[in-house]
């Protein structure tokens, strides 16, 4: 998920970006009062998480995850975003950012830089978590009975 110009990558970048960053970007986009239609109101919904278990390799429903999707049309370009949790403002902002980048907004470069920076921060957190975990790697030794 590293190319903000690719729709699928951008979806993941927006999903992972801090809500405050998205809100700021969306406000900047709306400053010029572009035509905006809300195609899907941002409101919490459910995703049923499906997992394939290892014994029989069959899927089962683990449980539901709260997400907030939103969809807009900005200047004739559609934008879609989905955020984890109950996050109406972030989802709405994300959909606006998605549409603006897709439509070649003047501030597109700034927005893609912000999304890339958010992705880097997230990757750094993941990397730190992994390396801290590796720092607790242990080799258990079996105490053999020589007798």
């Amino acid at each position: 998920m590293d190319d903000p110009n690719d729709r699928a990558d951008r979806f993941e970048l927006i999903a992972a970006c801090e809500g405050a960053v998205l809100a700021r970007l969306a406000n900047e986009i709306l400053e010029s009062d572009p035509p905006l239609d809300v195609l899907q109101e941002p409101k919490p919904q459910l995703l049923m998480q499906r997992v394939r278990e290892p014994v029989e390799r069959r899927p089962f429903n683990l449980g539901e995850v709260v997400v907030t999707p939103a969809e807009v049309e900005l200047g004739g370009e559609r934008g879609f975003a989905m955020r984890p949790g109950k996050a109406e403002r972030a989802a709405f902002s994300g959909a606006i950012v998605d549409a603006a980048i897709a439509g070649g907004h003047d501030r597109r470069a700034t927005m893609t830089d912000e999304l890339a920076a958010a992705a880097e921060r997230r990757e750094a957190e993941r990397r730190r978590a992994w390396n801290e975990s590796r720092h607790t790697a242990v080799e258990f030794e079996t105490l053999e009975d020589d007798g």
Partner: peptide, 9 residues
């Protein structure tokens, strides 16, 4: 809440 969908497995 409405269910948006099931996830990809």
């Amino acid at each position: 809440l409405e269910r948006w969908d099931e996830t990809v497995t």
